[in-house]
């Protein structure tokens, strides 16, 4: 399959043009954030505190990497289940978060918020952490060092493979593709 290269942070024009089902390769800067970071960031937003990282226009990648071996940039770093971030996501989108990369379906609230705030949800390849680690060219911790694998890191990635799951038009990869192949006669 042919994949188009997209730069992160994603220009608004790309966010509007990408469609559910598109295979893409992400290059540029993405921020890791999973359960602990979501809980703390959304709590900070609700209290009106300044966030330790600027999330406006940014791309979040839901991952908690394995430790890097000496000489390695990062360990295995595949996506974790996105659903667990759902309750915190609409408030982060309202505060400027633009793109999320994870695995699996999301709630209706998140889907609606993605349309409302003109954002994107991408899925990447669960269980392919060794392969995905090869796309990471630089990694630095930005916040929540105490959270270990759950710290917020800035990753410089090159040709990081992903598929557009929810687009700004309400497209839904799971609804669309699963319907297409259910009851398929082999």
């Amino acid at each position: 399959m042919k994949s188009q290269v997209v730069v992160s942070p994603f220009p608004n024009e790309d966010i509007k043009n990408l469609r559910t089902g598109d295979s893409i390769l992400v290059s540029g800067s993405i921020l890791t954030a999973r359960d602990v970071a979501h809980k703390r960031l959304s709590a900070a937003v609700e209290k009106g505190l300044q966030l330790p990282v600027n999330i406006a226009g940014q791309t979040f990648y839901y991952t908690g990497p394995s430790p890097a071996r000496p000489g390695q940039i990062i360990g295995s770093c595949g996506p974790t289940t996105s659903k667990r971030m759902d309750e915190f996501t609409p408030v982060l989108l309202a505060n400027g978060l633009k793109v999320m990369i994870g695995k699996g379906q999301r709630s209706k609230e998140v889907k609606d918020a993605i349309r409302q705030y003109q954002a994107l949800y991408l899925v990447t390849y669960g269980g392919a952490g060794a392969l995905l680690s090869k796309c990471v060219k630089k990694a630095e911790i930005l916040a929540y060092t105490d959270a270990g694998a759950e710290a917020v890191m800035r990753l410089e990635v090159e040709n990081f493979p992903a598929v557009v799951a929810y687009d700004v038009w309400g497209g839904d990869l799971f609804g669309q593709e699963i319907t297409r192949y259910s009851n398929f006669e082999l």
Binding site: T63, G64, P65, S66, R69, Q72, G75, S76, C77, G78, T80, Y125, G126, G127, A128, G129, A130, L131, L132, S133, K134, A149, P161
Partner: peptide, 18 residues
């Protein structure tokens, strides 16, 4: 991609999954 990941993990000793 899953098969390629298995090849890389085996060859480099990186965990298959984080």
């Amino acid at each position: 991609i899953i098969l390629e990941n298995a090849r890389i993990a085996r060859q480099e000793g990186t965990p298959l999954c984080q």
